[in-house]
Design a protein around this nucleic acid. Structure first.
Lengths: 150, 150
DNA sequence: TTACTTTATTTGTATTTACAAATATATAAA
DNA sequence: TTTATATATTTGTAAATACAAATAAAGTAA
């Protein structure tokens, strides 16, 4: 649906650029809401999910909390306590770097990888990533967003 | 900057559509961070700001918390307590509807309108809405986002 | 009217988040 | 070595948030 209608905006926006930015915020929020909702049965939120994805993406190489934080798309919450929960759920293991004893090494466990696989199916069934865009349109969207951020 | 570089993603995304969605989330988060940062001196967050904007947009007509909530782009927080703070800061007044005594009527105060004007200048000086897009590109972006949401 | 249902908002409370300060280790300089 | 500075992470704590239950007023049906 067209954005203005979705938020019941009756009067037109000052300009398309401001409208676009609000549209970005709105769209991101919609996506987040859907994800949080679907993740609820697994007792984790979108931040936990993103952390697991990042750790899985390391393919067996550990990552420090700092590295994870850097790559996180959005930085709500605090890594220590988000990871605390994942460790308690046994989705992530925490060790110490032999090179730098300040650093903590995070690794996804088999159980963590398992839950990610289950969630992937769930997301798939719920069409979380079924966007109504062609690859070409998505490419164009990426270009515009990059440009928007300046 | 190109999104993948900004998040240090080395390996390419599965497809442009997923990348686009992540880009949307990332872009929205960037924008939110900038706003929250600039609003800090005024002791309010982005939700408070949005509430004030919505009330100002009513041009003297009161809005109920329910109506405000409906129009809010993103729904973190709880209206009652977000408004509590705005009332305490005297940016918003709370009354009761004569027609429906369950309903609460919210109005922006002169002081609230004043702070919005100050913030607008601040945002302007900090180029919060200086997006590097032409109107035509912004229009295209809006179309793609609407399509993305399906 | 009485009882039931719905709607609007608030409240209680556990959890999460923000943010400053603390801890612990590493690195660099004197 | 000692001291200072930087870096990685955790901790304490106030504030914000989520969510279920409570309150309170309307609306509807018998």
């Amino acid at each position: 649906m067209e954005f203005s209608k979705e938020i019941n905006q009756t009067k037109p926006f000052n300009n398309e650029r401001i409208k676009a930015m609000l549209n970005v915020v709105y769209t991101a929020n919609k996506q987040q809401e859907q994800m949080v909702e679907l993740l609820k049965p697994y007792k984790i939120n979108d931040q936990h999910y993103n952390i697991l994805r990042i750790l899985k993406g390391r393919n067996g190489e550990p990552a420090t909390p700092g590295q994870v934080k850097e790559v996180l798309l959005n930085s709500r919450g605090d890594l220590t306590r988000l990871v605390d929960k994942l460790v308690k759920m046994e989705f992530v293991s925490r060790g110490h770097s032999p090179h730098d004893r300040r650093s903590v090494e995070l690794l996804i466990t088999n159980q963590g990888a398992g839950i990610l696989a289950v969630i992937a199916k769930d997301f798939d069934a719920n069409q979380v990533y079924d966007f109504q865009l062609t690859e070409q349109e998505a490419k164009q969207l990426n270009i515009l967003l990059d440009k928007l951020r300046g």
